[in-house]
Structure formats: C-alpha cells, structure tokens
C-alpha cells in the first residue's frame, strides 16, 4: 500500500438545538507512510474518533481530502471502534466470519481465537461475554480481514493489564509479520511509546497537530519499562506545551 495523506481543512458539527456549531478539526495534515505505526495522543474530546471516522470513510461531511497514493479509493480497513460493535444475534465466530471476503480464512480465525484465548467462546453470543472479551472479538474481526490500514480507537481500554499486555504483544507480532499501516488512538503515553513509530500530539478541539515525534527506541528494547519511562520524561520535559495537554 502507498502512503496515506490526510488533509482536513475543517470539520464542523452543525448546530443541534441550543448547541452552536462546533469546529472539531481545523487545518489537520498528516502523512502516514506505508507500514507505519502511528499513535494519536490527545486530550479527551479533542476529535480523535472523528478523525478515524473520516479516514474510514464513515464521515464525509468535511472539507479536505484523504489521498491514498494517487487514487482516492480507500484501502481495506480494519477498524476497532471504541465500543466493540458486535452483532448480538450472531455468535463470536459468526461475527468474525461475516466480514471475511475470503471464505478460506477459517485457519486465520482459528489462530486468532486461540491467540486471544477465545476458542471455547466461539459459539457464544456477545451478550454472554464480558466487555473485555467483546473487545478482543472486535480486535480479531479487524485482524482477520488482513487489513491494509488498521484504525484502533483506544482498543485496550477495559482489558485487565495482563490481557492488555498480551493483546498488545499479539498486535505487534501480527504487525511485524505483515506491516500494515496503523493509526492508533490512546490517552496512555507509555502505551503509545511502547507501540508507535511516530507519536502525533493533538491540540484540544478544534484539533490540529501540535507535535510529531519519532520514537527512537529500538523495538526489542520496548519491553523495558524503564526505557519507556525515561523517554516519556525526556519528551515531556522538552515539550512543555505537550506536557500541559496530558
């Protein structure tokens, strides 16, 4: 896949009732290089989800454009939404299989279910799952289509720390095997440093880029929490405007 250029001049939510029109994004420019893992870090309500929806093609009511190389067609996207968005009338496996274009992807589904420790829940309906388990199903669904672009909106929230760590490692493992472009939204700067090639810091609404920082830590050193913490301190000490935001 080629680079993705995001150029949003303005995204305004129209007035509803007493609420005035609200500019969510202004002059936002970002280029995602093919196979790059980019974390978006910004305060709550700054417009991160709106940005992901625009990139996913779910929100077309904005001024600007999303360019993929020279074409404007969207790549194959796996989107892990903030809430799992599983169909309650389909079992775990049926939810995953519904989005598969390739019927021979059953082995991938089996592998992912096993990796996420959900094999014995594959024939269970989502209402019987915990929120953490539903989130893992949503993650499998996104991975199973072998996406060219993976959009992740705070995917590890509500997972217990050991599971979150495990899923994070699986994500990195899959990404190393097939480096699709990832746009990952998080509040957690440590998590962002552990995962990303680049950190994009965002201003409060109307959202724009206020910091674009490459993470210099080698991938094999990212398991070391001291290394992560040291970089976080250096980063925040060197950028008071970012520190103020977080």
């Amino acid at each position: 896949m080629t680079d993705i250029q995001i150029d949003i001049r303005e995204k305004v939510f129209p007035a509803v009732g007493q609420a005035a029109p609200h500019a969510a994004i202004q002059d936002f420019r970002l280029t995602l290089r093919s196979g790059e893992f980019v974390c978006l870090v910004g305060p709550s309500g700054c417009g991160k989800t709106t940005l992901l929806n625009i990139v996913a093609g779910l929100d077309r009511d904005y001024q600007g454009e999303i360019r993929i190389g020279r074409q404007q067609a969207l790549p194959k996207i796996g989107y892990i939404f903030q809430n799992p968005r599983l169909l309650p009338w389909r079992t775990v496996r049926q939810n995953i299989e519904l989005v598969l274009q390739d019927p021979s992807a059953g082995n991938t589904v089996d592998f992912l279910l096993e990796a996420m420790q959900l094999t014995r829940f594959q024939h269970v309906y989502p209402e019987r799952l915990s929120l953490g388990m539903s989130r893992r199903v949503a993650i499998i669904r996104a991975f199973a289509i072998d996406p060219e672009l993976l959009l992740m909106d705070e995917p590890f929230v509500s997972l217990d720390p050991p599971t979150a760590r495990q899923v994070r490692e699986l994500l990195l493992d899959l990404w190393r095997k097939r480096p699709h472009t990832v746009l990952f939204v998080t509040h957690d700067l440590r998590e962002a440093i552990a995962l990303a090639d680049r950190l994009i810091f965002l201003s409060p609404s109307p959202m724009s880029v206020i910091g674009d920082i490459r993470v210099p830590i080698e991938r094999h050193l990212r398991q070391d929490e001291n290394e992560i913490e040291a970089f976080r301190r250096r980063l925040l000490d060197g950028a008071p405007h970012i520190k103020q935001l977080l």
């Binding site: 093609g57 779910l58 996207i77 989107y79 939404f81 989005v99």
Partner: peptide, 21 residues
Amino acid sequence: QDLLDMARCYRLSRLDTLRHV
C-alpha cells in the same frame, strides 16, 4: 447507526447488510 457504520467500514454488501445487520 454504530452497527451500520461497522457494516460499511467492513464493506459488507448491501444484501449482507440487509440480511445480517
């Protein structure tokens, strides 16, 4: 709308969206 957006994002056909969503 969340489920419809999910179907759109994962490029479900119109028929599949109608049948399953």
